[in-house]
Simulated assay, not measured.
Amino acid sequence: MSTLPKDTPPQANSGRKALVLFSGGQDSTTCLAWALERYAAVETLGFDYGQRHLVELECRLEVLAELKARFPQWAPKLGEDHLLDLSLLGQISETALTSERAIEMQANGLPNTFVPGRNLLFLSFAATLAYRRGASVLVGGMCETDYSGYPDCRDNTLKALQVALSLGLDTPMTLETPLMFITKAETWALSEQLGGPALNELIVEHTHTCYLGERKTRHAWGYGCGNCPACELRARGHAEFMQGRS
C-alpha cells in the first residue's frame, strides 16, 4: 500500500509563501516540486557549510534553471534563491561530510556522516530568513524511513522544532516534511507524480547525492561513486521504483 503524501487542498495554501531548504539533491528537488504544486510563491535556500560534496552547490543552480525551463507552470512561482555561508559548522564538525575521512559507523551507533546540529541550525536560519521574506512555511526533505539514523531527521525532533521556532518568532511557522514517512522508491514515484518522467530525468541528470562529490560516473539513477551510503540508498530506491513500474 502506497504511503505517498496526500494532496493538500489548493485553497488551504492560497496566498501562502514557502521557503524550501534546497541542497540540489534528489530529496530537496522533490520537495521543491511538491511546494511549487501547493504554494502561491516559493523561494529556495542553500547552505555552504564546508561540505565535502561542495559540487552540490553548483548542481542546485543547474536544477533551478532546468526547473524554470522545463516546467513553465512552476516558473512564475519560483522566486529568489538564497545561499548562506555556514562555514563555521564545518570548522567545528569532525565528520566524514566535512573532512577527508573514511565513512564508517561510530561507537554511538551513528555513521560519521552525521553532522551534529546541522538540521537544527539550518532550520533556525531558514525560519529567520522566512520571517524576513514573508514566508510562513518551511519545507525540508528530512525522512526517517530510508535514512542513516540521523536524530535531527526524526519527525518528533522536527515537530518540537516547529513549536520552538513559532514561539521564538511569535508567529506561526509551519514545517513541512513531505518525505518523512516514505521510502526512497516512493520518493522517485512522488517526483514522477508531480512532474512526470521529465522531472525524474532532471533529477537523474542534474541533482547530486554522492557524499564524496563524485560526478564522473553516470548510473541509471544519476552521478556518483556508487558505493557511499547516499549512493547506495539512491540506487536501491531507483531499482525498486523501476521494478515496480514493470
Rank of each mutant, 00 (worst) to 15 (best):
M1S: 13
M1E: 12
P5G: 05
K6H: 15
D7L: 13
T8R: 11
P9Y: 10
A18K: 02
A18L: 06
L19V: 07
V20F: 05
L21I: 14
S23A: 09
S23R: 00
Q26V: 13
T29F: 11
T30Q: 08
C31S: 07
C31F: 12
C31N: 10
A35S: 14
A35P: 07
L36S: 02
E37F: 00
E37P: 00
G46T: 06
F47V: 02
D48P: 06
R52I: 10
L54M: 12
L57E: 09
E58W: 03
E62D: 15
L64Y: 03
A65D: 14
E66H: 12
K68A: 14
K68R: 15
R70T: 09
P72A: 13
Q73T: 13
Q73D: 14
K77Y: 11
E80N: 14
E80G: 03
D81K: 05
L83E: 05
L86H: 06
S87N: 15
L88I: 15
L89M: 14
L89T: 05
Q91A: 15
I92R: 14
A96W: 04
R101Q: 15
A102V: 13
I103E: 05
E104Q: 14
M105F: 12
Q106S: 11
G109F: 11
G109A: 05
L110V: 10
P111G: 02
F114S: 03
G117C: 00
N119V: 09
L121F: 13
L123A: 00
S124G: 06
A130Q: 06
A130L: 04
Y131N: 12
Y131M: 11
Y131P: 01
G134L: 05
G134H: 04
G134Y: 07
G134S: 06
S136A: 10
V137G: 00
L138Q: 00
G140S: 15
G140Y: 01
G141V: 03
G141K: 01
M142S: 14
Y147E: 06
G149W: 11
P151M: 09
D152Q: 01
C153I: 06
R154F: 08
R154V: 01
D155T: 11
N156E: 15
N156W: 14
L158T: 00
L158F: 10
L161W: 02
Q162V: 03
V163N: 10
A164F: 03
A164R: 01
L165A: 09
L165W: 02
S166M: 05
L167F: 08
L169M: 12
M173Q: 10
L179S: 00
M180I: 11
I182Q: 02
T183N: 05
K184I: 07
K184F: 00
A185Q: 10
A185D: 08
W188E: 04
S191Q: 10
S191V: 15
S191C: 13
G195M: 03
G195T: 08
G196M: 01
G196C: 08
I203F: 06
I203Y: 04
V204H: 11
V204M: 10
E205G: 00
H206F: 13
L212V: 14
G213M: 06
R215Y: 07
W221V: 03
W221R: 09
G222M: 07
G222F: 01
G224T: 02
G226M: 05
N227R: 15
P229I: 08
A230S: 15
A230T: 03
L233I: 13
A235Y: 01
A239T: 13
A239N: 08
F241M: 09
G244K: 04
